[in-house]
Amino acid sequence: QGPLTATMLSSASPEEQKEMLGERLFPLVRSIQPTKASKITGMLLELDNSELLHMLESPESLRSMVDEAIGVLQAHQAEE
């Protein structure tokens, strides 16, 4: 299974594109943040596909986005 590319995504429906990206992202997110990986992956999937493809190729970008998502989640939970 090679890297996911924009060309591979372009042949799929918008819903399938998020599905394909989620399948690649989830294990990576889980390795960074095991407890909230499903929620964080859902949050990340709302971003642009081009940004998600970049994160799949750049562990540093992914990590910083996961950190940001954790911050957003914690702030949200603190408000409730």
Partner: peptide, 18 residues
């Protein structure tokens, strides 16, 4: 900070393989 990240986003669910 966190622009574009929505804490109410749908939770990702892995589709079982096979």
């Amino acid at each position: 900070k966190g622009a574009g990240l929505n804490p109410n986003a749908k939770v990702w669910q892995e589709i079982p393989q096979g």
